[in-house]
């Protein structure tokens, strides 16, 4: 498949209470790629993700998705357009069942499509299938993370924004999580991945951006691994 631009961010600044956390961010995501955004704590990775899904209104710059400007679009409009966010530290609804979490997240789908998408998530995560009637608050950390991913996948996204999916997971589960991200990508979903697990992220990525103190410090294809490692040591203190 020839490469085409799915997401294009130009000169984006955003933050909280008139204080910009990220400034003048320009990046491009090609359809079908996995793009990693690496950076230390407080670099503005989560702010960038929140601006991309529409939880934050940018103070400057534009976001284009599939060639259409979505800078001022609401969250539900962006979800309908094909963007979904898996937030940092999952925000599953603890007092609701696994099934209710998925049904509610699939609200933009027609009734039949909703059922298909939920079944698709159950196929991907058999653990969730076993626990569909169980309250999400009773799930283990890994299962809750799967549910959070499932909530995004039922919307049938073209672009999946993953904000530190490995956070708080046991090492064995972290590996599994990266496998799953790879599989989702093979199904044709473009992924923007925010991570602190530098090595694992670079391994599955096509392109890497390095974010530091709210700005893009460097970028390059993940295949140029040596260059990326230099970047890492320069900006992440040898991470």
């Amino acid at each position: 498949m020839p490469e085409s631009e799915l997401l294009s961010v130009d000169g984006l600044s955003a933050g909280y209470d008139e204080l910009d956390v990220i400034t003048d961010i320009t990046l491009s995501v090609q359809r079908g790629d996995i793009v990693s955004i690496l950076g230390p704590n407080g670099a503005g990775k989560t702010t960038l993700m929140r601006a991309l899904i529409g939880l934050l209104t940018p103070s400057a710059g534009t976001i284009c998705f599939e060639g259409v400007e979505v800078t001022d679009a609401t969250v539900p409009e962006r979800i309908r357009a094909g963007i979904s966010l898996v937030p940092e530290e999952n925000h599953v609804f603890k007092d609701m069942t696994v099934k209710e979490n998925l049904v509610l997240s699939a609200a933009t789908k027609t009734k039949d499509r909703k059922r298909e998408r939920i079944e698709h998530v159950y196929d991907l995560f058999p653990r969730l299938d076993e626990r569909r009637g169980q309250r999400a608050g009773t799930l283990s950390g890994g299962e809750a993370q799967m549910l959070s991913l499932g909530q995004a996948l039922v919307t049938e996204p073209d672009l999946l924004l993953l904000d530190e999916p490995s956070l708080g997971l046991a090492p064995a589960l972290v590996e599994q999580m990266f496998d799953i991200v790879g599989r989702i990508n093979e199904d044709g979903v473009t992924v923007v991945l925010v991570e602190q697990q530098v090595k694992s992220s670079v391994d599955i990525s096509d392109w890497v951006y390095v974010l530091s103190t709210g700005q893009i410090e460097d970028s390059g294809p993940a295949s140029e691994i040596g260059a990326v490692e230099e970047i890492m040591s320069a900006y992440l203190g040898g991470a």
């Binding site: 539900p76 937030p87 509610l104 919307t155």
Partner: peptide, 19 residues
């Protein structure tokens, strides 16, 4: 369901696009 979701986790509710 949306009401329960907002009562449960309002940030999560906004992320899945609830108004």
């Amino acid at each position: 369901l949306s009401m329960r979701a907002i009562a449960d986790d309002s940030v999560g509710a906004r992320i899945i696009g609830l108004n």
